[in-house]
């Protein structure tokens, strides 16, 4: 009875579950191999490992940009492979993402870059403005809202990218090497933002090869190598 209850508790607690997940590319490269892991709701998890370990592949699978070759990937109890096109769109609205290269739209101002997400989801203009201002204030860049991305430093650009990921109140935030282009001090500043996001209950998965940063933040870290888990800290 106790074991059944704890199993149920585990299921309710888990946000992401992978079971023997594999991703094989057409040239025979195994990016992921039999990966089984669970990420709980509200968890802050690092994915680390050398280049080509499979970190970015796992994030792409979690964004449902790609489909697994074998195994299963479930988010909130639903297999991502079984989602229809419109369900994929709905799922992505619950996920925020941050990239190493920021991917801000150069011709848009800071404000437009952040509100763009809500604009293309058909959110009312008044709500767009209110939430954009709130999230810019939260990342401390409300005073730069009329600037263009090229006028900002790397750290500021990444904070805008984080604001864009958060503006739609996602249940899950994925970040692929978000500090890859930043110096150590700025990297810690960005990680502190992720910690704050996580403190509000949002699940955060960050892929990074920066072990020092992981040590300083001090959260669970899964090390991948050749598509397999080699260490859990």
């Amino acid at each position: 009875m106790d074991s059944a209850l704890s199993a149920l508790r585990a299921i309710l607690k888990a946000l992401i579950e992978t079971s023997k997940l594999s991703k094989l590319y057409s040239r025979g490269v195994h990016a992921l191999r039999d990966l089984s892991l669970t990420i709980d709701k509200g968890e802050f998890l690092f994915l680390t490992g050398p280049s080509g370990a499979g970190k970015s592949t796992l994030l792409r699978l979690l964004l449902r940009e790609e489909l697994p070759s074998e195994g299963e990937l479930k988010v909130a109890g639903r297999s991502l492979a079984d989602l229809s096109y419109s369900q994929v769109q709905a799922y992505r609205r619950s996920v925020g993402f941050v990239f190493q290269d920021f991917r801000l739209i150069p011709r848009f101002t800071v404000f437009q870059n952040v509100s763009f997400v809500m604009r293309v989801l058909g959110v009312q203009a008044a709500v767009q403005q209110r939430k954009t201002f709130q999230v810019l204030k939260w990342v401390g860049l409300q005073h730069r809202m009329n600037s263009l991305p090229e006028e900002l430093s790397g750290g500021e650009q990444q904070r805008i990218a984080i604001a864009r990921a958060l503006v739609n109140d996602p249940q899950l935030v994925l970040a692929d090497e978000p500090t890859g282009n930043l110096d150590p001090d700025l990297s810690l500043e960005i990680m502190n933002l992720f910690r704050e996001i996580n403190a509000s209950g949002t699940t955060v998965v960050v892929a990074t090869h920066d072990r020092e940063l992981i040590r300083r933040v001090g959260r669970r870290a899964i090390t991948l190598d050749h598509g397999q888990i080699v260490e859990i800290v």
Binding site: L63, E65, V88, Q89, A90, Y91, R92, R93, F97, R103, I105, F116, V117, V120, L121, G122, N168
Partner: peptide
């Protein structure tokens, strides 16, 4: 294409893309 990539990733409806 950058905008469209972002639109796809945030789950924007086809009507917007």
């Amino acid at each position: 294409r950058d905008e469209i990539d972002i639109m796809r990733l945030v789950g924007a409806p086809d009507a917007y893309i």
